[in-house]
């Protein structure tokens, strides 16, 4: 695993993997959306409105997962001071913020007909909103430093402090009993405990996989451009010194 920390090797391997990951992401998204829109029957209570679930749930899941990925990168960056680690965290932040915003917006669109309100101050929604503020703060902190190494370290500390709230966002529905339903999908539970019918579950899992690979595609592209940017800066500095 450590050999991938070498930027040259990272560029080579990620460049080779990128088209495959992107291709599979597109295929899964097309298949999942076709299933979600045409194959899955309308929900017993919510009718066709429940179909927004196939975008909302993966986006919400990614919003939290991306933050944890950033925390992992932050730990690597703080311990080993490796450029690929902190550039990965930096590259993931805007994608995570976009997923969080998507989850909030689709949630609002889903909430209006089902709950009768665009927004409720419920534990899940509120913690997701705060998570969004953390993404914004993280991005703003990166921009505020001139020195990349300082920015990398400071943002890593901030990211780890914010992980408390990522945990809150993850477990808020189980900790507090509020309007937003609790997590209805568990992998590997027996059929009687299952709250989500299998005909909904399969397309949802496909969509989550598609979102994962979509994130991976964007992430790799962004990390690659960050590495290239660093190289350009190094070349420019060398040119100035000469």
């Amino acid at each position: 695993m450590w050999s991938f920390a070498n930027p040259n090797k990272f560029m080579r391997v990620s460049g080779a993997l990128l088209p495959w990951i992107a291709g599979i992401a597109v295929l899964l998204a097309v298949w999942g959306l076709y299933q979600a829109i045409y194959v899955v029957p309308p929900d017993f209570k919510q009718g066709d409105g429940a179909r927004i679930m196939f975008v909302h749930v993966p986006a919400a899941a990614m919003s939290i997962i991306v933050y944890f990925i950033m925390c992992l990168c932050a730990v690597f960056a703080l311990i080993w001071r490796h450029p690929v680690a902190y550039l990965s965290a930096k590259a993931a932040a805007p994608i995570g913020a976009a997923f969080t915003l998507l989850a909030l917006v689709t949630g609002a669109i889903w909430g209006k007909p089902m709950w009768g309100a665009w927004w409720v101050w419920d534990a899940r929604l509120t913690s997701e909103l705060i998570l969004f503020f953390f993404y914004i703060g993280y991005i703003a902190l990166w921009d505020a430093f001139d020195d990349t190494d300082k920015a990398a370290t400071a943002t890593s500390y901030f990211c780890l402090v914010g992980s408390v709230f990522a945990f809150l966002a993850k477990y808020s529905v189980d900790l507090w009993d509020t309007l937003h339903q609790s997590s209805s999908m568990t992998i590997g539970t027996i059929a009687t405990e299952e709250k989500l019918a299998n005909e909904f579950k399969t397309p949802l899992l496909i969509m989550i996989a598609a979102f994962y690979l979509y994130f991976l595609t964007l992430w790799l592209i962004r990390v690659r451009s960050e590495i290239r940017l660093r190289r350009i800066q190094a070349i420019r500095q060398a040119a100035v010194i000469e």
């Binding site: 509120t126 705060i130 703060g137 703003a140 902190l141 505020a144 300082k150 400071a154 901030f158 709230f165």
Partner: peptide, 22 residues
């Protein structure tokens, strides 16, 4: 502390700290 070395850290401090105050 995160914004201590910056010339205009005031607003950034608020953005970083307010979510933590919730």
């Amino acid at each position: 502390a995160l914004t201590a070395g910056m010339r205009r850290g005031g607003v950034l401090t608020a953005v970083l700290v307010l979510p933590l105050y919730v």
